[in-house]
Structure formats: structure tokens, C-alpha cells
Simulated scan of single mutants.
Amino acid sequence: MHTSEEIYHRVLWDPRFDPERFVMGIAERGAGPARVGLPDFVPGGEIPWHRVIFFEADGELVWDRATGVDRLGETVAADEAVPPEEVLAVPATSRTAVAWIPPRRLWPPIQHIRRVHDRQIHRWPPHVNVLFGFVPESDFERAAPLVASAARGVRPFRAQLEGVHWFGHREDATVWLDPCAGGDRPWLRLREALEARFPLCGGQARGFTPHLSLGRSHDPHTLATTSEALLGSMTARVAELVLLSRRADEPMGVRATVTLGSGEVRWTAGP
């Protein structure tokens, strides 16, 4: 049976659920349970998780501590639901990620730019994060089958890396190569499938822009223009995702590789 905390976070962050449909039952001393709309509940506030005794969706009981009812997945269509056993509600860390690493043949011009402009070049390989942060490496053994389940729903696809853009910050900007020039649909499908299984990961933020960071600059227009001229248009097959983690002061390392379409998992050096 899932915990009340896991049910809460799955409803809140799984795009298949509408939190407005859900009511939580809160145990009260000497009285019947109080009913609180899920969007109005404040985690970490005055109400501890053990006082959450049930969840209802549209008036129907979907989770109940006393009787063991645990059927949240039945509130969405069977072909869209992620089974409860495929959800890992573990808080994220910035020391891990699920990402795509482009083939080595594409690295030379990318690394040429990063060596000058990216302070993270010795920490990260060239990559496109699909989910960052991710669960701690200690949970990779549990997480890998869920990443595999998400990967099985997306067949390998061809990515076109073309166009250089930037995200503005207060004093500078992050300049990045666009991996979605040929379309972003498969990237978004991967992201949605992973968010549904790891509801506390990915920064808990709506919106996702696939990008390959090239560096930071106070003059992003100039860097973007020169980078675009150097990189041109590149294509690559996206057939695998990797589970990355950083141990102590080491760079991010590949701990497992997951194949799109089949969901095959290959461990690099054990979980």
C-alpha cells in the first residue's frame, strides 16, 4: 500500500490527474474527519502525514488507510494510467539525472565551445537532460525498471540539433544548442512518462525545454551567432537514455543505460 505522502505527490505532479478533483480526509480528535481539497493542503505544515486517512476523487474513495483501499490508478483511463507500483515518490537530488548523451562523433565542435564558455565541462559530458534532479543513486536499482517502463513507450527517434538560443539570467545567460529542430514530441513524451513515475523529480516545475548547454556568457547574442556558425546542423539517433550520478567530487558518470522501445537496462558498474 502506498503512503499518503506518495499519493498526494502523485496526484499533484502526474499530468494525468486533476488535483481539483481530489479531497483529503484529515483525522480530528473527538470528531469526524475534516475534508480538505488537495490543492489547499500544505505539506510540512501543521498536519502530519499520519493524520491523512483517505483520498477521494469526485466523491469516490481511492485510498483509505484503515481498509487498505489503494486504487488511484483506476481514476484515469486504463491505457493512460501508471500503475501505483510504477511510481517512486523519492525526493530528488541535483547529483543525478536521466539524460541523453549525443554520439562521440558530434562532440568535437560542442566541446570546443564548452572548453571556453562552460565551467561545468569537467563535471558533465555533452547532454540533454530529460529529468534533472533525479532520485539519489542509492535508489537507482528501484528506479531503473521504472525508467525502462517509460522508455518502452517511446521508440528510438532521429533528433536534429540545429539552432542556438539562450536562457537569460540576472547577470548573464545560458547559451544552448536546440535538439528539437526536427520536432519536440518524442522528447515531451519521454518527459511526461518519467514525471508520472517520479513525481518529486525534475524540479517539480511545469514546462520543459530540451536543450544542450554550451556555456554561459554576458554577450549571449555573439556567442549564439558564432556557435551556430561552427555547429551548423547535426543529426543523431536517440536510442538510449542514461542514468547519471556524481560521486563526491567526481564528474557525472553513467551508471545505467536504458534502451528506448525495448526498455532494456544495462548497468555500467552495478547499481
Score class of each variant (00 low, 15 high):
His2Thr: 03
His2Gln: 06
Ser4Pro: 01
Glu5Ile: 00
Glu6Ser: 13
Ile7Asn: 08
Tyr8Ala: 11
Trp13Tyr: 14
Pro15Ile: 02
Arg16Lys: 08
Asp18Asn: 15
Glu20Ala: 15
Val23Asn: 15
Gly25Glu: 14
Gly30Glu: 03
Val36Ile: 13
Pro39Lys: 09
Phe41Cys: 10
Val42Asn: 03
Pro43Lys: 01
Glu46Lys: 07
Glu46Arg: 09
Pro48Asp: 09
Glu56Ser: 12
Asp58Ile: 01
Gly59Ile: 00
Leu61Glu: 14
Gly68Val: 03
Leu72Ser: 13
Leu72Pro: 05
Thr75Leu: 14
Ala78Arg: 13
Asp79Thr: 12
Asp79Ser: 14
Glu80Ile: 06
Glu80Met: 11
Pro83Ala: 13
Glu86Cys: 09
Val87Trp: 09
Ala92Met: 12
Ser94Met: 10
Ala99Tyr: 05
Ile101Lys: 11
Ile101Glu: 15
Arg105Trp: 06
Leu106Met: 10
Leu106Thr: 02
Pro108Tyr: 04
Arg114Ile: 02
Arg114Lys: 08
Arg114Leu: 04
Val116Phe: 08
Val116Lys: 10
His117Tyr: 06
His117Gly: 01
His122Gln: 07
Trp124Tyr: 14
Phe132Pro: 07
Gly133Gln: 04
Phe134Lys: 04
Val135Leu: 06
Pro136Gly: 08
Glu137Leu: 09
Ser138Cys: 01
Ala143Arg: 00
Ala143Cys: 02
Leu146Met: 11
Leu146Ala: 03
Ala148His: 02
Ser149Met: 00
Ala151Trp: 00
Ala151Cys: 04
Gly153Phe: 00
Val154Arg: 07
Val154Tyr: 00
Val154Asn: 03
Phe157Tyr: 07
Ala159Arg: 07
Ala159Gln: 11
Leu161Gly: 11
Glu162Lys: 14
His165Cys: 09
Phe167Trp: 10
Gly168Phe: 02
Arg170Asp: 14
Arg170Pro: 02
Asp172Lys: 13
Thr174Pro: 06
Leu177Val: 09
Cys180Asn: 09
Cys180Gly: 14
Gly182Trp: 03
Gly182Asp: 12
Gly183His: 09
Gly183Ile: 05
Pro186Glu: 07
Trp187Gln: 13
Trp187Ala: 15
Ala196Asp: 00
Ala196Glu: 03
Cys201Thr: 07
Gly202Met: 08
Gly203Phe: 03
Gln204Trp: 02
Gln204His: 10
Thr209Gln: 15
His211Ser: 15
Ser213Tyr: 03
Arg216Thr: 06
Arg216Phe: 04
Ser217Thr: 01
Ser217Lys: 03
Thr226Lys: 10
Leu230Ile: 00
Leu231Met: 05
Gly232Asp: 02
Thr235Asp: 14
Ala236Ile: 01
Ala239Cys: 06
Leu241Gln: 11
Ser245Arg: 12
Asp249Thr: 08
Glu250Asp: 14
Glu250Gln: 15
Gly253Asp: 06
Val254Met: 09
Ala256Val: 00
Thr259Met: 03
Leu260Ile: 02
Leu260Trp: 01
Gly263Tyr: 00
Arg266Tyr: 03
Trp267Asn: 10
Thr268Phe: 04
Gly270Pro: 06
